[in-house]
């Protein structure tokens, strides 16, 4: 080493600290992310062999140990679509109210507090609520209807918040221009703002329904059944559903084939990740097409 130029010990130690700390962050991130990927891939590998035409389209046989999961798939579809029927219009309308109509006052703040609370209520408490109101008080019985209504209220906060956010991103100038051309408030919202916010709204809807499709606790005592020999005939019938089916076959059926379990999980995962992917696609496409 040339004389006179000595490495600064403080700089060196801070350099070491820097390197070590940044690696620590990378390590932590890997610890979060790798298990997720591992789980998803593991389920795909273990579940793939049991996926067959029969598995998808047949009824379970021999106490779930053989056959397919058709009624559970159909049930989850029913539940998801039924939830959408209630929560999508209500959630979008509420999002519109918050973004486009609500004055900045105490009432609006109260609404926001309510939404934050709805978002935080444990899913099993929604289940209790659904049981108390829809199943018992309104006498819908253990039914698709009761489950859908319960899931709807649970998904509402997601849909409302994403709708509001998507609407707020639409430039204010469009609203002013539309108003100046003689549009009423609703006309501006319906013809200009909402169409521009639609991709964001759709993303929120999909994410909300994704949650509804995968939830078990809210439907546990409101609408699902362990096994049904036929598909539900009306909204007042109980139904089978994938998440509940998974719960049952992985905890309460002795001698259950592990492969069928993984297969069922894979089908649910396919549902949920498919919706996730769809939401991302909507977002990416919209960003590319956006005019502002």
């Amino acid at each position: 080493m040339e004389d006179g130029i000595k490495p600064n010990p403080i700089l060196i130690s801070s350099h070491r600290q820097e390197t070590a700390s940044l690696w620590l962050l990378r390590l932590i991130t890997l610890m979060t992310v790798l298990p997720i990927l591992a789980v998803v891939i593991y389920i795909m590998v273990k579940g793939a062999p049991s996926i067959s035409w029969e598995f998808i389209t047949a009824f379970p046989r021999n106490g779930m140990r053989e056959g397919g999961i058709w009624p559970a798939i159909v049930g989850t579809l029913y539940l998801t679509l039924g939830t959408a029927v209630f929560s999508v219009p209500l959630g979008i309308a509420a999002g519109i109210y918050l973004a486009e109509y609500a004055p900045e006052n105490r009432w609006t703040r109260l609404i926001r507090i309510a939404i934050i609370n709805l978002a935080g209520i444990p899913s099993v408490v929604y289940g209790l609520f659904g049981l108390g109101v829809f199943v018992l008080f309104l006498k819908f019985g253990t039914s698709i209807l009761a489950s859908c209504l319960t899931l709807s209220i649970m998904t509402l906060p997601t849909i409302i918040s994403t709708t509001e956010e998507a609407l707020r991103q639409v430039p204010y100038s469009f609203r002013a221009v539309s108003r100046s051309l003689g549009a009423t408030h609703w006309q501006t919202t319906w013809r200009i703002v909402l169409p521009q916010a639609m991709p964001g709204v759709l993303t929120g809807v999909i994410l909300g329904l994704e949650r509804a499709a995968g939830e078990t606790a809210p439907i546990l005592f409101t609408g699902v059944s362990f096994f049904l020999p036929q598909l539900p005939q009306s909204v007042f019938d109980a139904t089978m559903a994938l998440p509940y089916h998974i719960f049952v076959i992985s905890t309460s059926v002795p001698g259950m084939s592990v492969q069928i379990q993984y297969g069922t999980v894979l089908v649910l995962l396919f549902f949920v990740l498919g919706m996730n992917l769809l939401a991302s696609l909507v977002r990416v496409r919209a960003r590319a097409k956006r005019q502002w």
Partner: peptide
């Protein structure tokens, strides 16, 4: 009617921009 300082075409076609006010009526 008013024209603002920054041109703000509505996110519609040229035709629909002009027809906008009439359609509202």
């Amino acid at each position: 009617g008013i024209v603002f300082s920054r041109p703000v075409p509505l996110p519609l076609t040229i035709y629909e921009n002009v027809a906008y006010g009439l359609r509202l009526m």
